[in-house]
């Protein structure tokens, strides 16, 4: 699909929706879709039809996903917190933390203390449940508007002292844990915990 003039044909759309396209072919189709406004609109429609079709016929397969994150739809906005730091298109309120994290996939590290939604004085440490088998973990502290305030070096164990470089004033802060899983080959494979946002009270 090198040329924008050659749109994805109907047969290819059907095969895509049936998850019958070989991976290389699928990639070619997608490489065209991200460059072509018309096919992008068609993809969105086909994607939605594919996702909703199992409501009509439960035997239809849902779109495949290599690692399904059960909490993802509800927490996508919150999980995008690190993304806010780098993307010019994202702005607005900070990520919302959510106590429903108990339902989160275990295939990710978890923030423990300070817990989401709590109010406290200056926390002396940040404690987390590591991702089993991870090669390394890092801890990130973010401001309430999603700015990265601190990114630790690899942490040994499951806690890290509150960074002296981050001067706390009363307000809202978020933090998260970034793990490089055992299978990870590059930073692109890193797994990030749900961010936990807490408030620091005044004196």
């Amino acid at each position: 699909m090198d040329s924008l003039e050659v749109h994805v044909d109907e047969q290819a759309w059907v095969r895509l929706a049936e998850q019958a396209l070989p991976p290389a072919e699928r990639e070619r189709v997608m490489d065209h879709v991200v460059r072509c406004a018309e096919c992008a609109a068609v993809w969105r429609a086909v994607d939605e039809l594919q996702r909703r079709a199992p409501e009509i016929d439960p035997r239809l397969r849902r779109p495949s996903r290599r690692r399904i994150l059960v909490w993802l739809p509800a927490f996508a906005a919150a999980a995008a917190v690190a993304f806010v730091v780098t993307s010019p298109r994202r702005s607005g309120p900070p990520p919302s933390s959510d106590p429903r994290r108990v339902g989160a996939s275990s295939a990710r590290p978890e923030t423990l203390f300070p817990a989401a939604g709590t109010t406290l004085g200056t926390p002396d440490q940040l404690r987390f449940a590591p991702l089993a088998g991870a090669r390394s973990h890092r801890v990130q502290v973010l401001s309430s508007d999603g700015k990265l305030l601190w990114d630790s070096s690899p942490v040994a164990g499951n806690l890290v002292a509150w960074p002296g470089s981050v001067r706390l004033v009363p307000g809202r802060y978020c933090w998260q844990v970034v793990a490089l899983p055992e299978w990870g080959q590059s930073p692109a494979d890193e797994v990030v915990s749900m961010p936990a946002c807490f408030s620091v009270k005044g004196p």
Binding site: P23, R26, E27, M30, V33, V34, A40, W43, R44, D47, P63, S64, R65, R66, R67, L69, L72, P73, A76, A79, A80, A82, F83, V85, T86, S87, P187, A188, D189, E190, V191, V192
Partner: peptide, 23 residues
């Protein structure tokens, strides 16, 4: 396309899609 759409397009995990975009 948002991150979830991108992950479905290329059959990536959420983290992978998000990190690829950020980087």
């Amino acid at each position: 396309f948002d991150v979830q759409e991108t992950m479905r397009m290329y059959d990536w995990s959420y983290q992978k899609a998000r990190n690829l975009i950020a980087r």
